[in-house]
Amino acid sequence: MKTSDLIAALAADTTPVRRASVARNLLIAAVVGSVATLVVLVAWLGLNPVMPVLGASWFWMKGGYAAALALSGFLLLNRLARPGAPVGRAALVIGALALLVMAMLAMHSSMHATPGQTRQLWLGDTWKVCPFRILLLSIPVYLGLTWALRRLAPTRLALTGAAAGLAAGALAAAIYGLYCREWAAPFVFVWYSLGVGLSAAFGALVGTRLLRW
């Protein structure tokens, strides 16, 4: 095919493009993936009744921490999906602040505990399974985001995969929080963060292949 013919064919297909279509694509994918993750959670582990814990501050602490990390990952993706766009500071600041606040809550809680409680605060009852559950639950969201990203144009694939894993892991952690009854800040700081970190590492690893366009 001659290049001029190709250009003529493409120009004939010049449909108007709406603004902010990148963010919308990513948002739809995140929502669809989150619903899938919720279905997996219910089918796999079931649901603990949520109503009794709605008044507990630890329930919102976990949700808030996960939401802040998810927002950070989402903002990163919104830049990384566009060729040549700088990553921007907002996403990094939000992510770092969330981690810092969580670390301070963990330290505060640990320092005010009696020696006998410390182990329980840091390990809870589920530390062996928590990070891996978050990693597994992140997969539907990750696949959803990957599907959206392949229609966009990320040029730094490992970094984009890591950001997608971060967003997916954080959303998975928020959803897992509906089931999980761990309440201690030190536990959340270590094991939730580890789960999200594993998701990001997995995302970077797989992203270099899955995200090619």
């Binding site: 493409l10 297909d13 493009v17 709406r18 279509s21 990148v22 999906a81 566009r82 060729p83 766009a85 966009l152 144009a153 366009w213």
Partner: peptide, 8 residues
Amino acid sequence: HLKRATYD
């Protein structure tokens, strides 16, 4: 052409 929506 295909990725032009990603231009801000």
